[in-house]
Nucleic acid binder design. Structure first.
Lengths: 215, 215
DNA sequence: GTCTATATTTTGATAGAC
DNA sequence: GTCTATCAAAATATAGAC
């Protein structure tokens, strides 16, 4: 009997495509779109370069597929939270914690977004799948803010998208700018203690902001 | 008499180098290190490609020079603020406003930093000039926080580098992620009203954070 | 110090057998 | 559907005259 592993990829198109996407994600997120090499991707797998063109048509086609896959992954994550039953402040803390952990756990995604911004989001614009991302997180935040105001625990009216940006910016920046920030300030942002402190910091900052009015 | 413009660059090495750096800054910040083309840089100026190699040795050498120049520019900016005489809260607001305006006015710099992070800050590490950036902004913030605590206007002790990160992250993200964020949330972050609102938001958030303790 | 022309290398993409 | 071998274009780098 032949060993499972050797045969597994034989005539298994879905598996082959998935393998290509996985390797390509790492390649592009490490080197950028222009810096990523199709040859390098092919070499890192058992399959050949020909298959990349067979399935994805071109280097850009592959990059777009990688990007769509990355966005698809987070969409599912956001929807899984059950926040409606929590008190507003706690709901917000859970949401922030989730965003924080997500960016921390998915540096590849963060880097791909950075790269896409270098390209003025040109590929994202071309992709219906990504453009039509339903941004449920905004509705989630909006609901929390409204409840908070109604219950009197939040005293400041705020735009949900702005609040999302305040949260995202911090969580994203910690990962996206880890290297330059770490170099300049000689600080390792992936250290456990630093991480915990930062997670509390951003949550406190958002909550305090919503609980205060400034003259 | 020959027109000034035509002769200006003749045998003016400093001017030539400066021209190259200016054009290269735009090229690299628009396309990344791998995506930037030496040919494109040469074509956008009156001088030839040969001079780029003559002065900077290689494409990477040019990129490094561009990066150093970009960092040199902000260093001077940060030192010019006179905050010691202002009340702590106001001093912080001025500092935040300055950071905000700087990133907004220098998208090229923001993009170069993003690009450098894609490359794990490898070039920055190799450059003494950048690595030894004296980070005066941290001392500035530290002084403000101490005064604030002493005067009783701030009630929370905070790490100056963390506060700097909270500020930087927001200001930087608005510019670095303008395209993907704008696409997903259909919002133009460079609009005047949005800008003003965001500038107030980050300042209020930082101040509120420093004025509160959370259970 | 500066230019035009060219060499060298890399790399995205394809042909054609199985 | 998959592989090996190869093409063609692009892009970095250099030669050599002035």
């Amino acid at each position: 009997m032949a060993p499972k592993h050797e045969n597994r990829r034989k005539n298994d198109p879905q598996r082959t495509q998935e393998d290509i996407l996985e390797v390509a994600t790492e390649e592009f997120s490490t080197h950028g779109l222009a810096g990523g090499r199709v040859d390098a991707i092919a070499e890192k797998m058992r399959t050949s370069k020909r298959m990349i063109y067979y399935y994805f048509g071109s280097k850009e086609g592959l990059y777009l597929a990688v990007l769509e896959r990355a966005y698809r992954k987070i969409r599912t994550l956001e929807a899984d939270l059950e926040l409606a039953n929590l008190p507003p402040e706690q709901a917000l803390r859970v949401l922030i914690s989730t965003t924080f952990d997500h960016d921390e756990a998915n540096p590849d995604f963060v880097r791909l977004v950075s790269i896409e911004n270098i390209h003025h989001a040109a590929h994202m614009l071309r992709s219906e799948a990504i453009r039509d991302l339903n941004v449920s997180v905004i509705e989630t935040i909006a609901a929390i803010l409204e409840r908070g105001i109604a219950e009197g625990v939040f005293t400041r009216k705020a735009d949900p998208i702005d609040i999302h940006m305040l949260i995202s910016a911090f969580c994203f920046f910690r990962v996206s700018n880890r290297y330059t920030f770490g170099t300049i300030f000689r600080r390792d942002l992936s250290e456990r203690a630093t991480m915990e402190r930062h997670k509390t910091l951003i949550a406190d900052a958002v909550i305090n902001y919503l609980q205060n009015k400034v003259a």
